[in-house]
Design a protein around this nucleic acid. Structure first.
Length: 248
DNA sequence: AAATTGCACAACCGCTTCGGG
DNA sequence: CCCCGAAGCGGTTGTGCAATT
């Protein structure tokens, strides 16, 4: 079993890229544009596999990359997007101009995870580490980790028991909306009584995963969609409209 | 000053998805 | 409809550097 390797490994370089390799790749892409990564290394005179070239270009050499530190606003946006999308780094990166999925993934693993933990939030579920408090917020868990929560619940209990979510963890913000402010939105879109499935709410109306029928050719008229009624993370979707999410 | 530890991030690996024949 | 190759994606590893002992 197993597929053939993407390249002749015996004749390819590995590890860190040299300045000369970078220059060759940049020059080639400037001259010929992106595309056909498999044949690019040979054409550009690089002893690398196409995958490696693609990654180097996308994550490091692309001229539109922002680089540098993430801003506080970017942090918060990443957290919100992750709470909605999970580890869909490419989708998240699509909402952060100049940032790459790899960069965001690394940043998440090294910075944001810790930041959330310090706030008493489980980075995997975006729920309070205190399991008891979390249960009172009836939301769906992306990836419950009972052991971690049990351990942390002993260590990180907040003091006020009366309002378990807001009072115990004042920094916790469960507003997961990603949409223009409600007052800016036009009339709610309607399907003629139907509701929007999760796939369509992500803007993937043509996906075969669509189970609301809106994505099917016979049903849809894109201007007739309501997002009301689809329940995700325990919130009504009339406040959870991320059709504006752009795909890369 | 040397050794150790921890962090940050670039790069790799393998699986999935997509699209053309 | 099926097959296969290419591209895309997410998890993981490797490495260099700074901080600490």
């Amino acid at each position: 079993m197993g597929r053939s390797p993407c390249c002749e490994k015996a004749h390819t370089n590995k590890g860190a890229w040299t300045k000369e390799e970078d220059d060759r790749l940049i020059a080639y892409i400037k001259a010929h544009g992106e595309g056909c990564w498999r044949s690019l290394p040979k054409a550009a005179g690089l002893l690398r596999c196409g995958k490696s070239c693609r990654l180097r270009w996308i994550n490091y050499l692309r001229p539109d990359l922002k680089r540098g530190n993430f801003t506080e606003a970017e942090d918060e946006l990443i957290i919100k997007l992750h709470s909605l999308l999970g580890n869909k780094w490419s989708l998240i990166a699509g909402r952060l101009p100049g940032r790459t999925d790899n960069e965001i993934k690394n940043y998440w693993n090294t910075h944001i995870k810790r930041k959330l933990l310090s706030r008493g939030i489980d980075p995997a579920t975006h729920r309070p580490l205190n399991e008891a408090a979390a249960q009172e917020v009836s939301t769906i868990s992306f990836a419950g980790n009972k052991e971690v929560k049990e351990k942390n619940s002993k260590d990180l209990l907040c003091k006020d028991e009366k309002n378990p979510v807001q009072e115990r963890c004042p920094d916790l913000n469960l507003d997961l909306r990603i949409s223009p402010p409600h007052h800016l939105q036009p009339e709610p879109l309607k399907t003629g009584g139907g509701t929007l499935c999760f796939v369509c709410s992500l803007g993937l109306q043509n996906s075969k995963e669509c189970n609301c029928g809106i994505g099917t050719p016979s049903s849809s008229s894109a201007g007739n969609i309501t997002t009301t009624g689809y329940d995700f993370l325990g919130v009504r979707t009339d406040v959870l409209d991320y059709r504006g999410l752009e795909m890369k």
